[in-house]
């Protein structure tokens, strides 16, 4: 089990690191897809079937498309421009390392390690009952936020009306 998790961690981490390092934005986005798939496999390995499939569906099916679309629309199929100056790169690296360190530290020092016995996975029906019962308000709130974000995005991206844009 540990070995499997280690392999999955590699499947997640290697593409993620590569995604940050490659110059080609499209390659980077596709590598992210691989990392997300690894994450979904992680969920599957610990028995969270529903989460795993939902994760794959949302990230691989939806988010990756949006990312690619954005990349293509801003920079149609071209290699990214000049490499960033070295000072900037160093700063970026510092931020990344400190972020990872703080996350790792918090999870190692302030989180209780899980018991050796894995908790049995929540049955799907129970999950549905939880979402529709105690967590209904949270679920609706999340939905509302997403809707607001969607509408906001639409408003920002929508082309200007002919009345404003002149004789287009």
């Amino acid at each position: 089990m540990t070995l499997l998790l280690a392999i999955l961690a590699l499947v997640c981490l290697v593409p993620a690191v590569a995604a940050v390092l490659v110059r080609n934005l499209i390659h980077s986005a596709l590598l992210f897809v691989l990392a997300w798939l690894g994450l979904a496999a992680f969920y599957l390995a610990v028995g969270a079937e529903f989460i795993a499939f939902a994760h794959a569906l949302v990230y691989v099916g939806g988010v990756s498309m949006v990312v690619l679309f954005a990349v293509l629309l801003t920079r149609p199929g071209r290699e990214s421009a000049l490499p960033a100056p070295s000072a900037q790169r160093a700063l970026g690296g510092l931020v990344a390392v400190s972020l990872v360190a703080s996350m790792l530290g918090s999870s190692i020092f302030w989180t209780r390690l899980p018991s050796v016995e894995p908790t049995p996975p929540v049955p799907l029906r129970r999950l549905g009952e939880l979402l529709a019962g105690p967590y209904l308000v949270a679920l609706l709130l999340v939905g509302l936020i997403l809707t607001v974000a969607l509408i906001g995005g639409l408003l920002l991206a929508a082309p200007r009306r002919p009345s404003e844009g002149g004789d287009a």
């Binding site: 897809v33 979904a40 079937e49 794959a56 569906l57 099916g61 498309m65």
Partner: peptide, 20 residues
Amino acid sequence: LEASVLYFFAAGAATELSIF
């Protein structure tokens, strides 16, 4: 699978990715 419908759509979601 308990969530096999979801599995199906998750599997199919990435097909257009390869067309891209």
